[in-house]
């Protein structure tokens, strides 16, 4: 019969419409600002810098690996220098990430040998300033290890275990932090 397929389709929509009032499986949306979906632990948004204890004690040693590996080149790092000797200290003086350029790919967190940069889960970052507003400096990027534990418990536990192990290897004087020297990034080869 002509129109049979059409009616069959309408039966499907009617069934869905009625079931949406009774069947919790059919309620597929949430009322966003009031209700929120819990994010899975792996969910990622933007990178942040982890510190242990106080904000001075950040894990980043300004090795610039993330700056070099970042695909959209949104990280900018300057090494802090000792005011007296002028020698570089293993700490960033400037650490900027431009969130408007960042594409949340997680490569910085992956390549970091010191577990210093990790991915955050915040997503409500809308701002009114297009140019400077999304440029996050070191102060804005610093977040505690406790916060990291809060958003990603399993991964943070693994990281802590790994870090305490590597600290044991390095032996008492903490002045010599990591066994691996933060090698200067290999200068990128220029194509002809």
């Amino acid at each position: 019969m002509l129109g049979n397929g059409l009616l069959q389709g309408l039966v499907v929509t009617a069934r869905n419409f009625i079931r949406s009032y009774f069947d919790p499986e059919r309620l597929t949306t949430v009322q966003y600002p009031e209700e929120r979906v819990t994010l899975p632990e792996n969910s990622r948004s933007f990178p942040f810098l982890v510190y242990d204890g106080t904000p001075d004690n950040l894990r980043c040693v300004a090795c610039k690996i993330c700056e070099q590996e970042c695909p959209p080149q949104c990280i900018y790092i300057e090494v802090e220098r000792d005011p007296k000797t002028g020698k570089p200290v293993r700490r960033p003086r400037v650490f900027d990430i431009d969130y408007s350029v960042c594409m949340q790919c997680q490569i910085c967190a992956e390549v970091c040998p010191f577990d210093a940069i990790k991915m955050d889960q915040v997503y409500e970052l809308a701002g009114t300033d297009r140019f400077g507003g999304m440029l996050h400096d070191k102060a804005a990027l610093l977040k505690s290890n406790e916060y990291y534990h809060q958003i990603r418990p399993t991964e943070a536990d693994e990281v802590d275990a790994r870090l305490s192990q590597s600290k044991k290897k390095v032996s008492p004087p903490i002045a010599k932090p990591a066994a691996v020297p933060p090698a200067q990034p290999v200068p990128p080869k220029t194509d002809v």
Binding site: L2, G3, N4, G5, L6, Q8, G9, V11, V12, T13
Partner: peptide
Amino acid sequence: DELEALITGNEILL
């Protein structure tokens, strides 16, 4: 199955 019931046999689509 639901998607097919919804549209595959629909005369307008055909």
